[in-house]
Design a protein around this nucleic acid. Structure first.
Lengths: 166, 166
DNA sequence: CTCAGTGCAAACCGTTTGCAGAACG
DNA sequence: CGTTCTGCAAACGGTTTGCACTGAG
């Protein structure tokens, strides 16, 4: 759990990226990168700050934001916004090149899944609209199995069928 | 373009919603609702405020936010976040019950399209993960036809293939 | 040594909230 | 008339930025 372990492949890739751009490879940048790679979840900046502090590092939020910006630009890390009012970050090493998210509106748990149907959607968009897809985002919000088993019901409010006349 | 025209079906539905909840139907609420229904685009709060001002109304931002909250809860209006740092709002009358968005990363234009493939995805999520879908969001970011025709190229930066070793 | 990075605190900006006065029912 | 709304301005919270100082190359 220390942030001082010998450089992982991820850190090495990040260092290379920085060096290619002529940017210094600082201790702080390595530490932030290390935290992001060490987790397989979707980290908030507070999560990252907490993990750093737990590892004995004391790095300012500004530096964390600035480093995350570099990580996102290097494409080693992906930025997510699940509508919580802040961003979350996830490394892009190994597994699912395309991975979508289902988010439980009750407990907030984020689970990933794959959807090859999206290829079809992108092809249609390309041929039918002449649109060139680069990046996509599919999020399904609902109730996870655990919450359903726990008896959670979704309370619908609002008009049942607003679509009537035009 | 006046906000004082006889109540449209939309306004009537909204009034009914408010009355059902025992809430007053105020002039401001009708004016905000009128602006949202009068546009077929994706409005920011500033857009709405501007349209109100252009119509001779002077309504505070706080009231606009509070009214939008009611409109969203009534399900007459949908809230979107395209990652611009603020929200956009779109009425849900008529057309596409399911409509996804493709967003041009160059000019910001948002175009809607339908994707029945999503039904399949939701079914899979339900059967494979026991997840109960309620709401979904699919956004495809890329280059619209106009920007491609105008010769816009996407400059890739970052590591080409970060996925190597684990 | 020099130039970029870091930390702190202040600035930012979209959104929310508290409160005195106005309006709905 | 009591209750809710409105408008203003101040508060909020995540993120960004300016600046003096530290550290990488």
């Amino acid at each position: 759990m220390t942030t001082e372990q010998a450089s992982s492949p991820f850190i090495r890739l990040f260092s290379r990226y920085l060096r290619d751009l002529g940017l210094p490879v600082t201790h702080q940048r390595e530490a932030v990168a290390q935290v992001v790679i060490a987790s397989d979840g979707h980290l908030s900046v507070d999560d990252i700050e907490g993990a750093l502090r737990a590892g004995g590092e004391r790095i300012g939020k500004a530096t964390i934001y600035r480093t995350l910006d570099l990580l996102v630009r290097s494409r080693l890390v992906e930025e997510h916004d699940f509508g919580e009012g802040f961003k979350r970050y996830e490394h892009r090493l190994s597994n699912n090149p395309i991975h979508e998210h289902m988010i439980c509106v009750e407990c907030g748990t984020v689970t990933e899944f794959e959807s090859n149907e999206l290829y079809r959607v992108e092809n249609r968009v390309r041929t039918e609209h002449g649109f060139l897809p680069v990046r996509r985002r599919l999020e399904i919000y609902g109730l996870c199995k655990d919450c359903q088993d726990a008896g959670v019901e979704l309370t619908k409010e609002g008009l049942i069928c607003p679509i009537e006349i035009a």
